[in-house]
């Protein structure tokens, strides 16, 4: 570790950035994600309600907009009921893991293109990694630990069954997801997320990689434990799955993690397939809208589709889930890589 002379503290850089710039960005991202997750729960309830011809929360604040705050207060004041035979340490840290693992991935997602402000390169991601995608694949796998540790440490059969299911599911779909992302890497010839977005300047990868996008999105639904792949917490079978024995704010952290995860996977899908912060390629006039608004708009759209799917499709049976993952999505992912690779190779040689 480098020892920093006091006078130079503000000038110390981590990678290309000053450390305090990174700190500010990190705080902003965490606050943003927490808020986004809170309002995703609100949006989820509203979408669910309107699909079922109901109105949804509308009593706390105008059209219920303060509902997340009320929920947070409720969760904070609730008693933490903990099972007696639990593994105290793991039981305590697992929920934090759930939220943290979901936030980690956001460190490398470029919300906007790099801008030059007074000669300073302002990156819109926290860590400007040139292997960002690799980092994302590594870090999103950490979520399994939160789920499995939570389910294991509670010493309850429902928790354990949910955790086992969840682990199997996440590991199975991890493969399909990784293969689905490979097409984007081949097309952009880079693991750097910013370069991947820049490669979509003329045409978004969703048009070149429709299969890859579909596979990724399905895999993302499975990785975030959303319907139709919500087997880990299948209420009708497992009470609440891996977080059965959690209550109060500890449960809240799992909930938070799940919704942050939704934001994260949507952001990854946006970056890799929907052109990140880039406006619609055809209409040149839309460039005046700042990139981060485009980015957030696309993320919101994907989150909405997740909710829409949730309130339409029923849960898959477990063996079908596994069949879909290993026997359909994985081969399709491989096929996608083969075709993409072949086309790119042929184009390069001609």
């Amino acid at each position: 570790m480098t020892i920093v002379p006091p006078a130079d503290v503000l000038g110390y850089r981590i990678g290309p950035d000053y450390w305090w710039v990174i700190l500010v960005k990190a705080v902003i991202i965490v606050l943003f994600l927490a808020t986004a997750a809170a309002y995703s729960t609100y949006a989820e309830r509203k979408v669910a309600a309107h699909i079922q011809l109901r109105i949804g929360p509308n009593r706390v604040g105008p059209i219920g907009l303060l509902q997340p705050a009320a929920d947070a207060v409720k969760l904070l004041f609730k008693e933490n009921v903990a099972p007696a035979g639990r593994d105290r340490l793991l039981y305590l840290i697992a929920p934090g893991f759930a939220a943290a693992a979901a936030i980690f991935a956001f460190a490398v997602i470029p919300v906007n293109g790099t801008q030059t402000v007074d000669g300073y390169q302002l990156h819109w991601d926290i860590a400007h990694l040139n292997v960002g995608l690799l980092y994302i694949l590594a870090v999103t796998s950490l979520g399994v630990y939160a789920i499995f540790l939570g389910g294991w440490s509670a010493n309850s059969k429902y928790s354990l069954l949910g955790a086992l299911r969840s682990s199997a599911q996440l590991i199975s779909y991890e493969m399909a997801v990784a293969f689905a992302l490979m097409g984007a890497i081949i097309l952009s010839q880079s693991l750097d997320l910013e370069q991947i977005v820049n490669a979509q300047h003329h045409v978004w990868f969703v048009l070149l990689q429709p299969l890859g996008f579909l596979l990724y999105y399905l895999g993302a639904l499975a990785e975030t434990n959303r319907l139709p792949f919500d087997l880990p917490e299948a209420e009708t079978e497992l009470v609440a799955g891996y977080h059965t024995e959690y209550s109060g704010m500890r449960f809240g952290f799992y909930f938070l993690g799940e919704y942050i995860n939704m934001v994260t996977v949507s952001a990854i899908a946006t970056t890799l397939f929907l052109g990140g912060w880039l406006p619609l390629p055809i209409i040149d006039r839309l460039w005046f809208i700042p990139g981060w608004i485009w980015f957030l708009g696309k993320v919101t759209l994907l989150i909405f589709v997740m909710m829409w799917v949730r309130w339409t499709l029923p849960r898959l049976r477990y063996d079908r889930l596994m069949n879909l993952g290993w026997k359909v999505m994985l081969p399709l992912g491989l096929l996608n890589i083969a075709i993409t690779g072949a086309v790119v190779a042929v184009k390069a040689s001609t």
Partner: peptide
Amino acid sequence: EIVKGMAFTLRQLFRKPITLQ
């Protein structure tokens, strides 16, 4: 079937809620 279902729920989204306040 999935597309049909999705289309149905999307239509539902724009119908008037039947909730009585």
